Simulated scan of single mutants.
Amino acid sequence: MPSNPGRATLATVAASAGVSVATVSKVLNGRSDVAPATRSLVQSLLLEQGYVPPSSRRDLAQATATVELGVDDLCAYSTEVIKGAVEAGAELGVAVVVTYTKDLAGVGGSWARDLVAAGRRAMITLMSAPTSAQLVALSKARLPVVVIDPLNLPDTGVTSVGATNFAGGLSATQHLLDLGHRRIAYLGGPATSTTNQARMHGYRAAMEAAGVPVPAEYVRTPGFCYPHGIEEGAILLDLHPAPTAIFAAGDESAMGAIQAARARGLRIPEDLSVVGFDDTEIATMTSPQLTTVRQPLREMGAVALRTALRLAAGEKIESNHIELATKLVVRGSTLAV
């Protein structure tokens, strides 16, 4: 019986037929100096075991090269990252298969093997990092993984791609300080999120450097989504004194805060200045357009794909964590006081 039924070789076919490797090679090459009965047996075993010549195997792998991209939340942010990965894949001749995995931890133990069997070269996850058990399964399957902007940092040995979140938080808050604001609130993502923590530390660093105290009630960390911005923005605006500016750690939560302000009759930016984070398409779809910190989202997707392919090819990666630069984009949602 073949030692590796998953990939037949000349040796495994020869062993099954009870002949030499040279005889199997002769059959493959159409040589006439093989007995008809032996030829028939070898040909049957080649078909049965699914033998593919090395050259054809390489061609097949190139033709079906795919990378899995697992996404647990389809929003404006993730859409931009996906576009970047898909566009880079098109340039490289690699297909990107996007899978919705709301709970990556819930998949079965055969998950990594199934991905390999389906022809995946590597896996990319967006925001959600694989669990320790899944990292072991991926390692056993020799399937490299790259995590984009993980909410919680995975094992230090896992390659990840993100942005300069601390610098982005610093620049957003400094912009509001430069406009004369001192009552600046922070509306962040989940408290345990590493991206949230980095942006919040940037906010706090700017406030501390300016000698401006931060009341505990001015820091809210519910999440990055629009409903979070509405709910927590309302809480911030009902404080006494209320903030004159809000730095939201996501464009969607910034839009929610703007909606909460308008529900209270406040004008943007005359009564409240708002800064977001991401610079997704929605930042330019509101009136006034949103001042925000731009993450190079498409480039993050492209870098993650290229890095995953490098790992799949056995190349050495210079750093396990890659950070791309952020940039403040000033639009109409902020105003001097």
Rank of each mutant, 00 (worst) to 15 (best):
M1W: 11
S3A: 12
L10H: 01
T12G: 08
G18C: 08
V19N: 02
S20Y: 07
V21A: 06
V27W: 01
N29M: 14
S32H: 11
A37F: 00
R39E: 00
S44L: 06
S55W: 07
R58G: 07
A63G: 02
V67K: 04
V71G: 11
D73R: 15
S78C: 08
S78P: 05
K83G: 07
G84Y: 13
V86F: 05
L92C: 09
V98Y: 07
A105T: 13
V107I: 08
G108C: 00
S110T: 12
R113W: 09
D114L: 11
V116N: 06
A117C: 12
G119E: 08
R120E: 09
A122F: 10
L126I: 07
M127Y: 10
S132K: 12
L135W: 04
A137C: 06
S139I: 01
V145P: 02
V146M: 11
L153H: 12
V158L: 01
A163S: 14
Q174T: 14
D178A: 09
G180S: 09
H181A: 01
I184R: 00
A191T: 10
Q197V: 13
A205Q: 13
A210G: 03
V212A: 12
G229E: 11
I235E: 12
L236G: 01
P241G: 03
P243L: 01
T244M: 01
F247E: 06
A254Q: 06
R262N: 06
A263D: 13
R267A: 12
T280E: 10
E281S: 14
A283R: 00
A283P: 00
T284R: 15
T286S: 12
T292P: 12
V293G: 02
A302S: 15
A304F: 12
E315I: 05
S319T: 15
N320F: 13
I322T: 15
L324C: 10
A325R: 14
T326P: 09
S333F: 06
V337A: 03
